[in-house]
Design a protein around this nucleic acid. Structure first.
Length: 277
DNA sequence: CCTGAAACCTGTCTGC
DNA sequence: TGCAGACAGGTTTCAG
């Protein structure tokens, strides 16, 4: 489900409150409930519950599409994958009993002040790590596209070093971290680059256009609090600004030619066959 | 090194 | 109405 802008929106809300939820920073963990074991990547259920209890959340950060929470001793890392979502809400009723969870809630973390963090994930692809070595989980990631260190030259080097179709390359988190299916299609349309173009064939000008497009599209996504499609993620408005994504057959906003859909690397891919060369 | 397919899962929508 | 099939924001693993 969520890509960089959606995860960033969620992280900001968890860090400083807003979006209908309270901030998590400073809260102390009292207990946990797990209803789908495979949600835990590491450690096992018993170790997870024992170890996380009593730790305090010091911050909520984002790296690529991972939500990273440094705790007192360990780091709690969450990846929402396709359908994951997080809620911060009241955890107990007046009698002190835990309030019922929603369908598809896989993990609930209860805090000492009565709130809880619920991890809802219909498709069960999401994963949670509790580890003293967060770098082990986050090592194989490429640069952050919105980082000031990510320059046109950085992108040029990444593209020239390989000979791959540009779309799957941009989706590869070890090359560039944070783009998903929506923002890749949107960025390639802004840059006027065909999704099957080989990465090492982009001209200097096209590379500059793509660099700019990636950043423009991600920033627009964040500005709109992400994109809300179907039932998985709510609260964003960027879906109203899609240029090509899920607009098969509708006119290209630039030239009016019908948007086409093809499949590349098992992912639906939307582009304008007239604008994107 | 690169591509494609399968796997992990459930829910929704479309067409016959 | 019912049901099969396609499709969905992600990532890993394996075959060729």
């Amino acid at each position: 489900m969520p890509e960089l802008p959606e995860v960033e929106t969620i992280v900001r809300a968890l860090r400083q409150g807003g979006r209908g939820g309270a901030a998590l920073t400073g809260r102390s963990i009292q207990s946990v409930t797990l209803t789908w074991e495979r949600t835990l990547a590491t450690p096992g259920v018993a170790d997870f519950a024992t170890r996380i209890t009593g730790q305090t959340i010091h911050d909520v950060q984002r790296r690529a599409k991972f939500i990273v929470m440094p705790l007192t001793l360990d780091t709690l890392i969450i990846h929402l994958r396709m359908s994951g979502d997080l809620r911060v809400e009241t955890g107990f009723d007046l009698a002190g009993k835990p309030l019922p969870l929603l369908p598809h809630d896989r993990l609930a973390i209860y805090f000492s002040d009565g709130l809880r963090l619920a991890f809802n994930d219909a498709r069960k692809f999401g994963r949670v790590w509790l580890t003293p070595h967060p770098e082990d989980v986050l090592t194989h990631l490429g640069p952050e596209p919105l980082d000031e260190n990510f320059t046109v030259d950085t992108l040029a080097v990444l593209l020239r070093a390989r000979k791959r179709q540009i779309k799957p390359l941009l989706l590869d988190q070890s090359v560039l971290a944070g783009l998903g299916n929506i923002y890749t299609d949107e960025a390639l349309h802004v840059a006027k680059v065909h999704p099957t173009r080989l990465s090492n064939t982009l001209t200097t000008e096209e590379t500059a256009q793509l660099w700019n497009a990636i950043r423009i599209v991600l920033q627009a996504g964040i500005h709109n609090n992400g994109a809300s499609i179907d039932w998985a993620y709510r609260g964003g408005d960027f879906q109203n600004n899609f240029r090509v994504y899920q607009r098969t057959g509708q006119p290209c906003p630039v030239c009016g030619y019908p948007v086409e859909r093809i499949v590349i690397g098992q992912r639906g891919t939307h582009f304008c066959p007239n604008c994107q060369v």
